[in-house]
């Protein structure tokens, strides 16, 4: 810096040395940033998730028709299918509208022609009793392809609320799509 400039600086009064920042440019940029954030702002609703571990299904093909499944079961009937995979099967048959028509745990019918809160509570109780046997560590939901996703997750929710016999939560839930023709034969 030259001596002259020092001299000039020292010679001026305080008010004349005041440096005015040009805020207009900064304000322009801030407004542009603000416009960007306002335009890209999309408040997403807080949504939840059901965490499930979905192993590959033990029955890759549609499940075979179980002879004992067609008529409503007598109370003394078997509570659940025990298979070598330690998998408890839940069958969900749906109507044309995708609403569950009949729900079975193994061969035991737990909901027939209704899918209200009482039927869901009944399924929950039956599931709890079946899992208390200690023979299962996973559930396989064999569902009609027409079943609405909302009713599927309702069933999954009931499953994820259950505890296994060792106290750990049930997280292993597999899905199998059921052949509609098989279901029609069963319902008839």
């Amino acid at each position: 810096m030259s001596r002259r400039s020092f001299g000039r600086r020292g010679g001026r009064s305080k008010s004349s040395d005041k440096v005015d920042l040009n805020l207009a440019a900064m304000l322009d940029m801030a407004f542009q940033l603000l416009t960007f954030f306002i335009l890209t702002f999309r408040p997403a609703p807080t949504e939840g998730q059901l965490a499930v571990n979905i192993p590959t299904a033990s029955h890759p093909q549609p499940a075979p028709v179980e002879p004992a499944a067609a008529p409503p079961q007598d109370p003394a009937g078997p509570v659940a299918d025990v298979n070598p995979f330690e998998t408890l099967t839940i069958h969900v048959d749906a109507n044309e509208a995708g609403v569950p028509q009949r729900v079975r745990i193994g061969t035991r019918v737990v909901a027939n022609n209704r899918w209200d809160e009482a039927a869901q509570a009944h399924l929950s109780r039956e599931l709890r009793d079946a899992l208390a046997l200690g023979a299962f560590d996973r559930v396989q939901i064999i569902a009609d392809g027409r079943l609405a996703y909302s009713d599927l997750v309702k069933t999954v929710e009931i499953c994820t609320r259950q505890k296994l016999s060792d106290g750990s939560p049930l997280h292993k839930i597999a899905f199998v799509q059921r052949d509609n023709a098989v279901q029609r034969d069963e319902l008839n």
Binding site: T46, G48, L50, V52, I54, V153
Partner: peptide, 13 residues
Amino acid sequence: FRQFQLSAMSAAE
């Protein structure tokens, strides 16, 4: 993939 999260709205939301 084995771990899945099935999205749903909570009842309160």
